[in-house]
Design a protein around this nucleic acid. Structure first.
Length: 107
DNA sequence: TGCTTGACAGAAG
DNA sequence: CCTTCTGCCAAGC
């Protein structure tokens, strides 16, 4: 794993996150898979957390596969609700309704 | 160099 | 709903 590959992974992650439409969400695992590293779901979260500039992206539209919001980030749920994302009674995002998957990343 | 941690995933209790 | 465990992999100490 070269440093260039790591940079590509980071760029792909940021690129994909930036494409998430309002009112939609996607998962860390989906982003990692699209970036080319299916088992690096944790690195996606780490990237969004520690990469300067990630705040400019709609990273609040990234949740885990269960529809749970990021721990320690109280505002995420409010931001999503403001966009029309609905939450179920168990406090998780209604995934089957709002889940979004990347399209034509290459072209 | 080796152990711990974490914006994950999934299963289990 | 909650916590805990295993698997995963990079970063921090």
């Amino acid at each position: 794993m070269s440093s260039e590959q790591a940079r590509m992974f980071r760029d792909d992650v940021l690129n994909i996150v930036g494409q998430i439409p309002p009112g939609r969400v996607t998962t860390y695992g989906t982003i990692a898979a699209w970036a080319g590293w299916p088992s690096h779901s944790r690195m996606v979260g780490r990237t969004l957390r520690y990469t300067p500039g990630a705040e400019l992206l709609p990273c609040h539209r990234v949740v885990n596969k269960e529809g749970r919001t990021a721990p320690g980030w109280s505002g995420q749920r409010l931001l999503l609700e403001a966009e029309g994302v609905t939450f179920r009674a168990n406090g998780r995002v209604d995934m089957q309704r709002h889940l979004w998957e990347p399209e034509n990343v290459g072209s």
